[in-house]
Amino acid sequence: MSLNPFLAWLAVLVFDTCGQLAFKSAAHHAEGDGLAHWRAMAARPWLWLGIVAFVVEFIAWLAFLSLVPLAEAVLLATLNMVTVMLGGRLLFDEKLTPRRMAGVLLIASGVILVGLG
């Protein structure tokens, strides 16, 4: 990958990961059921942060697709599973079991092969 596609890919990864973690945070910290749960989520910044991150990601994804073929793009974007999992480990103390590590390593090596072409 040359520089511009790389930057677009980085933006997709960063904003996707931030968005997913923000949504997780919104759901995690809000109390209540049904409508009350949604009210509690709307009263905190996390939900809105997540929405903004996904709007930016939407634009970054379009930019990325302008620069690389669709097949390569969707394969490279699967690294978000790795970054979200690492984010979950850092922020929510989710466990990285050996099986999860194996899945992460498979995806990461696949992404490297696709990226190198």
Partner: peptide, 30 residues
């Protein structure tokens, strides 16, 4: 993308795609 957009993956990229699919299946199992 292969059928409608006529995109082609190189051989190393195809190997990478297989690894990624396996990785997803492993994560799904865990």
């Amino acid at each position: 993308s292969a059928w409608l957009l006529h995109e082609r993956l190189s051989l190393p990229q195809s190997v990478g795609a297989v690894l990624i699919v396996f990785g997803i299946l492993v994560l799904a199992r865990t």
